[in-house]
Design a protein around this nucleic acid. Structure first.
Lengths: 205, 205
DNA sequence: GCCGTTTCGTGACGGCGTGTCAACTTTGCG
DNA sequence: CGCAAAGTTGACACGCCGTCACGAAACGGC
């Protein structure tokens, strides 16, 4: 009756989800406060009500927690990319929407104004984790899609996706270092750069 | 007589330089073999003939050794950039030379064919260390120089430098993952992308 | 050469974080 | 209610960290 939308009813399942969530939340806070490198598993677990051993029922290491956080972020970001792809009227529009979405995401995700810079908090911000790879694939598919529709010239989509991601990450980081960060200006810069770049590319494949 | 070009004669100075060098060499090998994250200061010192305490006479931590290695790399790379700037006949030529130089550098620097991927070995590959910042400055100056000479349109050189660096890093990484890596093709891709991007940029400042 | 001074290598030590595990508590279920 | 399964707990052994008192080796004045 009261559990109309109870996705999990067992007390065990609820506790499990709650514990995992508590650890993730604590980790996010601890990483932001003292930095990923210096943070210890104990620091994280102290941020919860659980005992040290319990940590290892959920994650194998500090690194795995970080990856889980990155996965979360990527999972939340993917819909933004997909929406950009589906609602865009042309290639230029797609790029602009995707970049703007990413930069807004960056602003929204950084721990409320304080916290350490992303660079310090993200030690190995590479396309390692599965969900990270999924974002890369989403970008690449978006580009291939545009090419298939004749909206962009046929080029090496692997290089192109990597180029767009690397460029966006660094311009995004530069944007965050300015105060106040200007999403519009940064997005316009990155988007126009990419569009111009794509059009100048050697047409392969 | 026999010491015509002896830069350091004191036995102390020579030992110091040799020890520091031994630690750096061992660290480079250890990082490549077992990865930066899992490597310990003890692992590094075991790769030399020295005692554990000696490590701390030269570096404060594993991270500081890594930074020293990064500094070394950046210091060796900077002349490549400078040469590109000085010998280039126009903006397009400058970009092409710089990118090609960087990609050749990547190929030359990776631990002989084996070793872990750069991404795993370089946990915080950001523009943190002084020498790293110097590379960024070198890039930015090269771009400002081109703009001042009217070879490129006036744009936000901070964003532009970041964009070029991020793009080059990621395309370079993608190149290294292919076998065999094709420096020419990758450099042509990155250079043309950048040139096209710059020309499409909103002219500010 | 000799010896006081300084510099530096050495490895043992206290402190701390790690990951494990046997004992204990809670939940699910008949 | 009671048993089995699942999960939590914190103490423990292990390994790494960074330091420090000690001794050896190099320097430099005589």
């Amino acid at each position: 009756m009261a559990e109309i939308l109870a996705v999990q009813d067992g007390k065990r399942e609820r506790a499990k989800a709650a514990n995992r969530d508590a650890i993730l939340k604590a980790a996010k806070r601890v990483f932001a406060e003292i930095g990923y490198e210096t943070a210890t598993v104990r620091d994280i677990i102290r941020g919860t009500e659980l005992a040290s051993g319990t940590f290892y029922n959920y994650f194998r290491s500090k690194e795995e927690v970080f990856e889980a956080l990155a996965e979360d972020g990527a999972r939340r970001f993917r819909p933004v990319l997909r929406a950009a792809r589906e609602s865009a009227v042309d290639f230029e529009d797609y790029i602009r929407r995707a970049i703007t979405g990413y930069f807004q995401f960056l602003i929204a995700e950084r721990i409320g104004e304080d916290g350490r810079p992303v660079s310090e908090m993200a030690p190995h911000f590479r396309t390692d984790t599965p969900e990270m790879k999924a974002v890369y694939e989403e970008v690449r598919l978006g580009l291939e899609d545009a090419i298939a529709r004749g909206l962009a010239p046929p080029v090496d989509t692997d290089y192109l996706a990597r180029a767009c991601i690397g460029l966006s990450q660094d311009v995004g980081a530069a944007m965050l270092q300015r105060s106040p960060p200007d999403v519009e200006a940064a997005a316009a810069f990155a988007a126009q750069f990419i569009i111009g770049g794509v059009n100048a590319l050697p047409r392969k494949r």
